[in-house]
Amino acid sequence: MSNPVTEAFFFGKALAEVLTEKAEDTLTNTLSEFGKFDAETRERLRQFAEEVRLRAEIAKQQSENSSTNTTITVEVDSSVDLQELLDELRAEIARLKAELNKYRQK
């Protein structure tokens, strides 16, 4: 006959092993998904910055073609903070609006 205490011990040990394995699998999958999400987010931000840079280039070329003296320079660096980039673009827009108002008042 089996001793109930021994059976309980082995049952508890098996339960702990299974729970540990499941927890490891869950943590591994969660970290993997987070890594994918982070990589995808960085790629989307890089693509966004590239699109902004291209549009700025197009606007610059159109501006040069219409013989306007306004120059727009956008430098894209993958390590640039998106909020910082947006703040810089807003400041540039404000500066251009001020220049445009000066031009209109002449």
Score class of each variant (00 low, 15 high):
residue 18 V to K: 14
residue 18 V to E: 09
residue 18 V to Y: 02
residue 19 L to H: 15
residue 20 T to S: 05
residue 21 E to D: 12
residue 21 E to P: 00
residue 21 E to L: 11
residue 22 K to E: 06
residue 24 E to N: 14
residue 24 E to Y: 03
residue 24 E to G: 02
residue 24 E to K: 08
residue 25 D to I: 07
residue 25 D to H: 15
residue 27 L to Q: 12
residue 27 L to I: 06
residue 29 N to M: 09
residue 29 N to K: 15
residue 30 T to W: 04
residue 31 L to E: 06
residue 31 L to T: 04
residue 31 L to A: 02
residue 32 S to E: 05
residue 32 S to L: 05
residue 32 S to V: 01
residue 33 E to H: 10
residue 34 F to W: 05
residue 34 F to R: 09
residue 35 G to H: 11
residue 35 G to T: 03
residue 36 K to Y: 10
residue 36 K to I: 02
residue 36 K to L: 05
residue 38 D to M: 14
residue 38 D to R: 15
residue 38 D to K: 15
residue 38 D to H: 12
residue 40 E to I: 02
residue 40 E to K: 11
residue 41 T to E: 07
residue 41 T to S: 10
residue 41 T to P: 02
residue 41 T to H: 09
residue 42 R to I: 09
residue 42 R to F: 06
residue 44 R to H: 11
residue 44 R to W: 08
residue 44 R to I: 12
residue 44 R to L: 15
residue 44 R to K: 14
residue 44 R to G: 04
residue 46 R to H: 11
residue 47 Q to K: 08
residue 47 Q to C: 08
residue 48 F to T: 10
residue 48 F to W: 12
residue 49 A to M: 15
residue 49 A to D: 02
residue 50 E to L: 08
residue 51 E to T: 06
residue 51 E to M: 09
residue 52 V to I: 13
residue 54 L to V: 04
residue 55 R to M: 05
residue 57 E to C: 03
residue 57 E to P: 01
residue 58 I to G: 04
residue 59 A to G: 06
residue 59 A to T: 05
residue 60 K to D: 02
residue 61 Q to H: 06
residue 62 Q to H: 13
residue 62 Q to S: 12
residue 62 Q to K: 10
residue 63 S to Y: 00
residue 64 E to N: 07
residue 65 N to L: 05
residue 65 N to S: 08
residue 65 N to Y: 01
residue 66 S to V: 03
residue 67 S to M: 08
residue 67 S to C: 04
residue 67 S to P: 00
residue 68 T to I: 13
residue 68 T to G: 02
residue 68 T to L: 13
residue 69 N to A: 08
residue 69 N to Y: 13
residue 70 T to L: 10
residue 70 T to R: 07
residue 70 T to S: 09
residue 71 T to G: 01
residue 71 T to I: 05
residue 71 T to L: 03
residue 72 I to C: 06
residue 72 I to M: 13
residue 72 I to Q: 03
residue 73 T to K: 08
residue 73 T to L: 07
residue 73 T to H: 13
residue 73 T to W: 12
residue 74 V to G: 00
residue 74 V to W: 01
residue 75 E to Q: 04
residue 75 E to H: 11
residue 75 E to A: 07
residue 76 V to E: 01
residue 76 V to L: 10
residue 77 D to T: 09
residue 78 S to F: 03
residue 79 S to W: 02
residue 79 S to L: 13
residue 81 D to Q: 01
residue 81 D to H: 01
residue 81 D to Y: 00
residue 82 L to N: 04
residue 83 Q to I: 14
residue 83 Q to A: 12
residue 83 Q to V: 15
residue 83 Q to Y: 08
residue 84 E to P: 02
residue 84 E to D: 06
residue 84 E to I: 09
residue 85 L to V: 11
residue 86 L to R: 06
residue 86 L to I: 14
residue 86 L to V: 14
residue 87 D to I: 00
residue 88 E to A: 01
residue 88 E to G: 03
residue 89 L to R: 00
residue 90 R to F: 11
residue 90 R to E: 12
residue 92 E to N: 14
residue 93 I to L: 14
residue 93 I to H: 15
residue 93 I to F: 04
residue 94 A to T: 04
residue 95 R to T: 13
residue 95 R to P: 05
residue 95 R to I: 07
residue 95 R to H: 15
residue 96 L to M: 09
residue 97 K to Y: 12
residue 98 A to I: 05
residue 98 A to N: 03
residue 98 A to M: 10
residue 99 E to D: 15
residue 99 E to L: 08
residue 100 L to V: 02
